[in-house]
């Protein structure tokens, strides 16, 4: 059995509200749709301290990445320049516990779309 990476057990009650606030700050309160943004993350993190996450939104200006279950949900914001070869990027992030990773993309026309994926952070199984 694992017993590795003992995660914070209690999710702060205000976390969900914090995520909404962060998104609102990014969108200026505009409506957020779906589609056109792909968020790729593993079903199970090999290591909660370094979880690979990829976002891709063709035509986006910027993409906000949030970890909904972290004490502070901020992760990063990608701003794509004129020479970006694709509006896509990968990085590695810290997840304190099993949670949803959320991305919001600002498109060139000023609209916003959202995508999310749950990532399981486990203290370990056993082997066959």
């Amino acid at each position: 059995i694992g017993l590795g990476g003992v995660a914070a057990l209690a999710l702060p009650l205000q976390a969900a509200a914090m995520v909404d606030d962060k998104i609102a700050a990014f969108t200026g309160g505009a409506d957020v749709g779906e589609g056109g943004l792909t968020l790729t993350a593993p079903e199970i993190a090999e290591n909660g301290n370094t979880v690979p996450v990829e976002v891709s939104a063709p035509g986006a200006v910027s993409i906000l990445l949030l970890a909904a279950g972290n004490p502070n949900p901020d992760v990063c914001t990608f701003n794509f320049g004129p020479l970006a070869g694709a509006q896509a990027a990968s990085t590695r992030i810290r997840l304190a516990r099993t949670q949803e990773v959320v991305a919001v993309a600002k498109m060139a026309d000023g609209s916003f779309v959202r995508a999310a994926q749950e990532v399981k952070v486990t203290i370990g199984g056993c082997g066959g």
């Binding site: 301290n49 370094t50 972290n70 701003n79 004129p82 970006a84 070869g85 990027a89």
Partner: peptide, 23 residues
């Protein structure tokens, strides 16, 4: 000319890694 400009918060892992594409 800019390709990408990223704002990082403390939830980015040790030894920050980025992969992206450029023209």
């Amino acid at each position: 000319q800019n390709v990408i400009d990223v704002t990082l918060e403390p939830a980015i892992s040790t030894n920050p890694y980025f992969e992206f594409q450029s023209q």
